[in-house]
Design a protein around this nucleic acid. Structure first.
Length: 293
DNA sequence: CCGCGGGCCTGAGAGC
DNA sequence: TGCTCTCAGGCCCGCG
């Protein structure tokens, strides 16, 4: 599922069931996620308390009283479901991505809050790791991540500096987690459309010769922050796999202006263009050739 | 350093 | 209906 707005939606759903509560029992039905579960996974979690549940880019970070941090990634198709207690579930009671299919429930956390948290991931591109908190900042997963796009540290100056003299395209630059953490295909396309910038243009247009941000950099940063805030407000985008932790869908897919709208009219006021799809870096880029330059 | 292609997995949708 | 083919929001590696 997940880009930043979806991961943040999941974080907000999980926090009440996790923060301040202990892992009472952990069941790993399938340890062979893309990254195998760490050794003694259940034993290392059971009995420890979640001090805080944070997000960094597309990662969820549960800080544990044991001193380790549980680092979770949803991959392409991961979702979490919070359910009350241990009562029996009837098939189809929860509209799971794959209806009654529980075959992809890989990990279950039974929490001292009385709630069960189930990780479901059909494609198994997700991951769960345990990293000592002291090592987290310097861990390869975190060390290279760019700024959080909704923090003040992500601004036109910072983005221009990161993109100055880059030969790569705007699309590739924004998709690069080292430049800014949390954007994926959908929100890169949407942000570039909002800023009227072509995905194919060089990222270097964001900086002047001296490295100072151009007006385009200011517009793009504003567009990124705006689209992410809007999407979080809507509970993220549900195309196929993303669900909130209560099983409800996100709503932001109804607010897409370019993504998945090939051939449809551009929504920029006064623009007569229609949305085009083009492969870029092996993935579909959606944009309006008429108003994005 | 860079872009590209492929691999990791399963499922949905399109086309025949 | 059923088969095959393509594609999917992430990330990582190796190649040229």
């Amino acid at each position: 599922m997940p880009e930043l707005p979806e991961v943040e939606t999941v974080r907000r759903g999980l926090a009440p069931a996790m923060e301040g509560h202990r892992f009472v029992r952990v069941t790993a039905h399938r340890p062979d996620l893309r990254v195998p579960l760490p050794p003694r996974f259940a034993a290392r979690l059971e009995g420890s308390r979640v001090l805080a549940l944070r997000r960094r880019g597309k990662y969820l970070l549960a800080e544990l009283s044991s001193g380790e941090t549980l680092v979770m990634h949803l991959g392409m198709s991961g979702s979490f479901r919070v359910t009350r207690g241990r009562r029996k579930r009837t098939l189809g009671e929860f509209h799971h991505p794959r209806s009654e299919d529980r075959a992809h429930d890989h990990v279950v956390f039974l929490m001292s809050s009385g709630e069960a948290i189930t990780f479901n991931d059909p494609r198994r591109f997700g991951s769960m790791r345990l990293i000592p908190r002291a090592e987290l900042a310097e861990h390869p997963l975190m060390r290279g991540l760019g700024p959080e796009p909704l923090d003040d540290g992500f601004n036109a100056e910072a983005l221009a500096q990161a993109c100055a003299r880059k030969k790569t395209s705007l699309k590739a630059a924004l998709s690069d987690q080292r430049i800014v953490a949390g954007l994926g295909n959908i929100y890169v396309c949407e942000a570039l459309w909002r800023a009227h910038l072509s995905p194919m243009r060089s990222a270097s247009i964001l900086a002047s010769r001296s490295g100072a941000p151009t007006p385009r950099a200011h517009a793009l940063v504003a567009a990124i922050k705006e689209v992410l805030r809007d999407a979080i407000k809507a509970g993220g985008s549900s195309l196929r796999d993303h669900r909130r932790t209560d099983g409800e869908l996100g709503d932001f897919q109804h607010a897409f202006c370019v993504y998945d709208r090939e051939g449809e009219p551009c929504l920029t006021p006064g623009c007569k263009g229609s949305i085009r799809r083009k492969a870029q870096g092996g993935r579909s880029t959606y944009y309006c050739p008429a108003c994005q330059h």
